[in-house]
């Protein structure tokens, strides 16, 4: 059931991505990257079993968030 929930979450996030794609502007770009981050976190935590406890999930998601912020920065300047 938990896997199904993750799958549905991913599909919902994909729908959100599609909707956001039609919105111009830096805020929408940030939202697109934030949605990508949520998808990545769902895959890492849900499908790849990176639990919250060990710290490994943060080892992936924190650099990922910083990098997405960098991509956003390069996009808006």
């Amino acid at each position: 059931m938990e896997l199904t929930r993750i799958w549905l979450t991913l599909l919902a996030l994909t729908a959100a991505t599609t909707a956001l794609a039609f919105v111009p502007g830096p805020a929408a770009a940030a939202a697109l990257l934030a949605v990508a981050f949520l998808k990545a976190r769902a895959i890492l935590g849900g499908f790849l079993h990176l639990g919250r406890g060990s710290g490994w999930r943060a080892a992936f998601t924190v650099p990922l968030a910083i990098w997405l912020a960098l991509v956003w920065g390069l996009h808006v300047i």
């Binding site: 896997l3 199904t4 993750i6 799958w7 599909l11 994909t14 998808k39 895959i43 849900g46 499908f47």
Partner: peptide, 8 residues
Amino acid sequence: VSSGFCAA
């Protein structure tokens, strides 16, 4: 993502 769900 659906394919990934099947793999999971």
